[in-house]
Amino acid sequence: MMRVGALVRGDDQSALEVLSLARALGGDAAETYLILAAPAAQHAAAGAARAVVLEGIADADPAQLLAAAQALIGAAPPDVLLIPDGPLFEAVGAQLAGSIDRPAARDVGSVAIEDGRLQIVKGAFGGKAEVTLDAGEGAVLGVRQGAHQADELPQAAPQVLEFAQPAPLLSGRRAVRDASGEDLGRAKVIVSGGRGLGSAEAYRSLREVANLLGGALGASRAAVDEGWASPSQQVGITGQKVAPEVYLAIGISGASQHLSGMSGSKVVIAVNRDDKAPIFAAADVGVVADWQALWPELRRALAGG
């Protein structure tokens, strides 16, 4: 029998999904670990068995998260440890796996145990493909957000462990919020620009569009590399995965890793001058046009309404 565990932070949707998945795979024997921001009390709803409390972990410090995870797991780690893919997995997942000599995988969609062997399906080639892996007898897995249902979980107060919180990873640290101030995660409308815009000046014109539509300003990897946008604005597998009501992609050809990052959007509208751009295959509405020429007309049309 494979021992299944789950490590989550807080009780957001992705944490509940992973806890539910752990119970589905390991039944009541699933070992659940919770990392909490103080105060701890109201987080009992997550139904985790053990918890530690970290003070002031708003910025998700990797060293403190790793120490907390190691304290929770103790000397006998479960065979399969599930972690929501995202900042927590980024900070501790693989390193924890290495320290307990387990393989690791992330962007995992489905997990199954067949004949005592772990079978996982994950994305590959920038979202162009899906790979099914025979993951052997144990692994640390980053579970893709939204891939599993969050079930009703039993209510039980977790056992809060004594924990000596170590120093943060970086000394003399200073957190800086991006000048862009975009909160893509919560935005209802996202206007994103890519290399097809051709210039920083053209990218800046999107700011006005975002303001008009009451949305946030996103970017493709190319636009970030060009320095037109800041890294926190990047949408994609390795940037932010977003799920707004409306995603307006302008001058983005649609590299698969970008498409994966925005695939959760409700309505996707694409503007690109290349009528063969793959973005159109991922869009609900497509406009084949040069943005610089279209924009003055669009501004007029929006104002005229």
């Binding site: 290495g98 320290s99 962007d107």
Partner: peptide
């Protein structure tokens, strides 16, 4: 960008 594993640095650090 091929197998999109994204874990090698962490595994290395852990080991």
């Amino acid at each position: 960008g091929d197998w999109d594993q994204g874990v090698t640095a962490g595994l290395f650090a852990g080991l």
